[in-house]
């Protein structure tokens, strides 16, 4: 129950941040990415504020050795730069540029009920699901346990 309340509270603070910062507004994101147009650098300040608070806060929290509600911190350990990371980030950048919406602001805007937001989020969930299936497929190919795609060619 405490974990659920923690998630709800953290999500609410995150949503408030997206709303107040202007990141929830696709036109604002578009103006930030449009460096050759009427450039609005506001969103650089969102990144700045978020990264500084997180960088300092994380280091204070990590001094504890463990989180309050779980046994241990669950931190990503990978350090390799693989093709999936690069292709995935490039695709994400293209989609972000097209719509001016990334996953957080897409979800955070759902409550206002705009058709554009609903279409974005519904398609985003389909895309996420497809990528998970694609990841499983790649994993099976690598482990050799999957369908013998190569021999059928």
């Amino acid at each position: 129950m405490k974990r659920i309340v923690a998630g709800l509270f953290a999500g609410a603070v995150f949503g408030a941040g997206l709303s107040i910062s202007g990141l929830i507004n696709p036109a604002k994101v578009d103006a930030f990415l449009d460096i050759a147009g009427d450039w609005d650098p506001s969103l650089a300040f969102v990144m700045l504020g978020a990264v500084i608070v997180t960088a300092v806060g994380y280091r204070l929290v990590w001094r504890r050795g463990s989180p309050l509600l779980e046994q241990a911190f669950a931190l990503p350990t990978r350090r390799d730069i693989d093709p999936n990371l690069l292709v995935g980030a490039a695709l994400f950048g293209i989609g972000w540029g097209l719509g001016g919406v990334c996953p957080g602001p897409g979800l955070a805007g759902l409550g206002f009920g705009a058709t554009e937001t609903l279409a974005f989020v519904a398609a985003m969930i389909v895309g996420m699901f497809a990528a998970r299936q694609f990841g499983d497929f790649l994993g099976r190919l690598k482990s050799g346990a999957g369908p013998t795609v190569t021999s059928s060619q």
Binding site: G7, G17, L18, V46, V53, G57, F73, P103
Partner: peptide, 25 residues
């Protein structure tokens, strides 16, 4: 934007302190 960004950071720190998780949407 700076205040909103600070709140996003605060949320990330809260999730790390309470649940030890990364706040990746």
């Amino acid at each position: 934007s700076l205040i909103g960004g600070g709140l996003i950071g605060l949320s990330a720190v809260m999730l790390m302190l309470l649940s030890g998780r990364i706040a990746g949407i």
